[in-house]
Amino acid sequence: MAQYITSDDTQIYFTDTGSGPALLLAHGYGCTSRYFKNNIPELSKHFRVIAVDLRGQGHSNKATKGPRVSRLATDIHELLISLNLTNVTYLGWSMGASVGWCYWDLFGSDRLAKFIFVDEPALAAADPDNPTGAMSIDDLIAFQNNMRDHTDQTIETFIRSLLHKTTLNIDDLVTDSQLGNVNFLSQLIFNHHVLDWSDVLPTITLPSLVLSGENSLVNWKSTKHVSDLIPNSQFVRFSDAGHMLFFEYPEKFNQVVTEFTNDF
C-alpha cells in the first residue's frame, strides 16, 4: 500500500491500481479498502482506482485525532491534491457516502467529476422524526461502550450484520476491520450518525448515481430519498442484496459503476 501524510501529520494508506479516468473508493464505518476486493480488479481494467483506508481504520489505524466526517473528507481532498488528480469519480459506500457529501459541502466540485453513493441515508440516527434510522442515541452509546469493552466481538458482530448473503465468507474482512483504532472508532460512530445531510444533497450539481440494497439494514426507501433530493440523480436498487451489495453482486455492481463513470 502507498501512503501520504495529511496536513495534521497523520498517515493515510491507499492502493492505486490501473490507469485511465480516476475512480476513488471510500469504504463504510469500521471497514477498509479490502472490502472492494471483488471490484478493484475489474474496475481497474477501465479506471485508475484509488481505494483508501480512511483515517483510524484499516492500515490508517495510527490516527488518534480527527474522528469526524469532516476530517475524513479533508483527508480525501488532500489525497487528490497530493496525487494531482482531477475529474475524479467519487464512490462512497455507507459512511463513505457521508464523507462525499461533506466533501461537497466543504470543497464543492474541486477535482471531482461525478458521485456514486452506495446505500446511505441522509441521517443515520434514529429518532421519532427518523424512525427508519440505524441506531438511536441510546443504541449509539451502548455501541460505543461495547466497542471499548468487547472490541473484537463487537466489530465482528457489526460487520457480519452488513451482509445479506450470509453464506459468503468474510472472515478476512472482519480481521481487516479489527485493525482499526478502537478509541477513534468509538467516537467516529457517534459523529457519523448524528449528521443530517438533507440540506446539502439538493445543492449537488455533479452527475450522481445512488445505489441501494433491497434487503439492506438501511431501508432502501431512505436511500431512494437521497436520490430524490439530489437533482437529476439516477437510482438503482439491487434485488436480494444487503448493505454490502458491491460484495454480494460484484458483476452487476462493476457493470453499473463502469457504465455510469464512462457515460459522458
Rank of each mutant, 00 (worst) to 15 (best):
L209T: 02
L91N: 13
S98F: 07
D171R: 05
W104V: 10
H192T: 15
H192R: 12
L163V: 15
P131G: 00
F117R: 04
T132K: 15
F115K: 04
V210H: 02
T203I: 06
L168S: 04
L185K: 04
F158I: 11
Y103W: 02
D149V: 06
M147R: 09
S94K: 02
W197I: 04
D110P: 00
W93A: 05
N146D: 15
V200R: 02
N145I: 15
A126M: 13
L83H: 11
T166E: 06
S98P: 08
V174L: 11
L188S: 00
T86G: 05
S98D: 09
D127M: 12
D152P: 06
L185H: 03
D110E: 14
A126I: 14
I137D: 14
I155T: 10
D171G: 11
F117D: 00
F115C: 03
W197D: 08
V182M: 12
Q187I: 07
I81G: 10
V200P: 02
L85S: 05
C102M: 13
Y90E: 14
N183M: 07
V88H: 11
L163M: 13
T89I: 13
S208L: 01
T89C: 10
V182F: 09
F143G: 09
L83C: 08
V174Q: 10
S109M: 04
Q178E: 10
A124P: 01
M147V: 07
Q144Y: 10
R148Q: 13
D127N: 15
L83I: 01
M95A: 00
E120W: 08
L162H: 09
L185S: 06
L195H: 14
A113G: 01
M95N: 04
T203M: 15
D171S: 14
P131C: 05
T175V: 12
W93Y: 03
L91K: 09
A97S: 15
E120I: 07
G96V: 03
V182Y: 14
R111C: 04
A125C: 12
N181L: 08
A126T: 08
N191H: 12
I159R: 06
L91P: 03
R160M: 14
Q187C: 14
L188T: 00
L162E: 12
T89N: 04
I137G: 04
S186R: 03
D127V: 05
Q187W: 07
S186E: 08
P202L: 02
S109P: 05
A122K: 08
L188H: 04
M147S: 09
T132F: 11
Q187Y: 05
F107H: 00
H192W: 14
A142F: 11
N181K: 11
I116Q: 04
T86F: 07
D138P: 00
D199N: 14
S82G: 13
Q144D: 05
G108W: 06
F190W: 09
L106F: 01
Y90S: 13
A122T: 14
P131W: 04
W104H: 15
L195N: 12
M147C: 10
F107N: 02
S177F: 07
D176L: 13
H164D: 08
P207K: 14
D171L: 10
F115W: 06
N130R: 14
S177R: 08
G92E: 01
T205D: 08
L91Y: 08
A124C: 12
F184Q: 02
G180R: 09
T167Y: 15
P207G: 10
D196A: 02
W104R: 03
D196C: 05
A113H: 10
W197P: 01
N191R: 08
V99Y: 07
S186I: 07
P131V: 03
H164Q: 03
L185C: 11
